[in-house]
Design a protein around this nucleic acid. Structure first.
Lengths: 132, 132
DNA sequence: TTAATCCTTCCAGTTACTGGAAGGTCAAGG
DNA sequence: CCTTGACCTTCCAGTAACTGGAAGGATTAA
């Protein structure tokens, strides 16, 4: 099947699918006219990639996951440790975003938000008084 | 003062300070030898930028915040709405990350993580069974 | 004088796509 | 048979916000 259909099946934009080929993630066959021709297995891989990306894995991590998926001698511990590392990274990011959010919320609460120029938000960004 | 000192004062790497000049955020004076020469006011702006970036504002938003900071006719409501929009964006991101984290945690819990190849994580990424 | 540590500019690379141009192919309708 | 529209192809450039490194000039201390 050609790229438009592969896109619909996998949920990835055609542009992204071509990009994945560019970086050697999936190489489809070619039809006589030069069009890409995706097998069921290819679609499977594309869907796998789509889901792994949605779970927060980088493209390089997805490459590894895909190779592990196709490696019948893999150790599940390798996959698990990838997943747990990702969880840790995500947790760190959540903590960081939460603290940013709390700070901004406090600043916004302090600001009356009308047409006058005095603004605690700017004052605090400018001043020494930022407390997280 | 030259860029190394400005870097120490503002907490921004010299590279970043030069980059901010490149994109017209802050233009310091130049000494006779061609070195950048930062005034106290420049340092103030750099510190402002550093903090606003840390709060999650994009560089373009920082440009706007800096211009508002220097605009004595500003309305505080404009600043407040920037802050509240940012809070909303951050909240969305946190929700997204939290759902990724929960999913990965569940997958990792289901995986025994030893030297055998069978792995529920890969199975679920590959299969139709992803439930968020 | 020389070595270390600044500073300068400029070019390239990062991540993961996305947009767009220029042009080939295919299926359907008139 | 021709045209039109929707596909497909490749290639080039741009995004965000830096970061690294090369090549070379300036300053300072020993």
């Amino acid at each position: 099947m050609n790229i438009g259909f592969a896109s619909k099946k996998s949920g990835l934009p055609s542009k992204t699918i071509r990009y994945y080929e560019d970086i050697d993630l999936i190489k489809p066959a070619r039809a006589a006219n030069g069009y890409r021709n995706y097998s069921e297995q290819d679609i499977h891989s594309l869907t796998f990639l789509h889901r792994a990306r949605d779970l927060g894995f980088s493209v390089e991590e997805c490459r590894l996951l895909l190779s592990l998926y196709n490696d019948k001698n893999r150790s599940s511990s390798e996959v698990k440790s990838l997943a747990l590392n990702k969880v840790a990274t995500i947790e760190k990011k959540i903590i960081e975003l939460t603290s940013m959010k709390e700070m901004l919320t406090r600043l916004a609460t302090d600001c009356h938000g009308d047409n006058r120029p005095d603004c605690p938000i700017l004052d605090e960004i400018a001043g020494e008084v930022l407390v997280s």
